[in-house]
Amino acid sequence: MKREATADAIGTHERASATPVHTDHHAPSRHGVTPNWVPRELNLAAQQAWFEAIVTTPESEPAPADEAGLLRLVTPSKELTALERLDVYRRGYYARLVECLVDDYPVLQHALGEEAFEELSHAYIAEHPSKSPSLNYFGRHMADFCRTQPLPSPGFAADLAAIEWAIVLSIHAPTAPTLTSEELATVPGERWPSVCLKANPSLCILHQEYPANAYLQAFRNDADPSVPEAKRTSVAVYRTQMRVWRLELTPPMVTLFEALKSGATLAESLNRVAPELEGTPEAEAVQMVMHWFRTGVSSGLFSGLYFA
């Protein structure tokens, strides 16, 4: 049961009015045929739809522009052909959104390697173009997307993406106060069974097939971890004030915290966890549950209490 802080810069990508610097390693873009508009068809709406189609067409596919036809619509400069000028935008579109995904998924990028991650990102961008003024949630489909892709270990990639996305979500979730042990101490003994805890609004409990959290932490510790073998794990991701945390959970802890998170009273929550403690002496079971409960509270999983 380890509570690990996550680097503050994660998931805080900038969206600036800058154009990404394009590297020169790109293969030549493929081009198709420029529309042969008659003058009355060439209105602003048609021109923008055409321009957007060029910009968003992957460079490996033919965009609706060719040099000869393009000269009717775009002028060349002294240094660049009309097609080369359009390609500045075409490359910028993918470069900007790949940067955004790198910012949200730095550990996934490390696990896959830069080239494979860029390829994955291009496929993602084509499948899930942004339809929002904000890039804050652009990467939200990545975990599911990984499962559909021909990756070496799609399940592991998906689990890693899920943790990184939970970190992003925790950053954007409302900030709430943290429930303190002093507040808990005010609860009269006879009311304990009916006490309910308010979950930290950023709390997300993930159930995973791979120990992706351990991999992520090894990466944070500057190690170069290998892709792990499958092993079921659960991890809580949440934020207290400005800091994001990850807390690995055992199965009974998951049952307890998920029950409390759902609004169940403490008594109901203990009933739910009881079957998982069968065979454990009662006094020991009580000690264990109280320890988990205190861990959850002191770690910041909860933001307040109320009575059912």
Binding site: L44, Q47, G92, Y93, P129
Partner: peptide
């Protein structure tokens, strides 16, 4: 910015150029 960022509900998140015409 004097630009457009997308049409058909897409957002390219780029500052795309306007044609400088009377219509625009």
């Amino acid at each position: 910015h004097l630009c457009w960022t997308g049409v058909s509900s897409k957002n390219t998140h780029d500052l795309l150029p306007m044609p400088y015409t009377e219509e625009a």
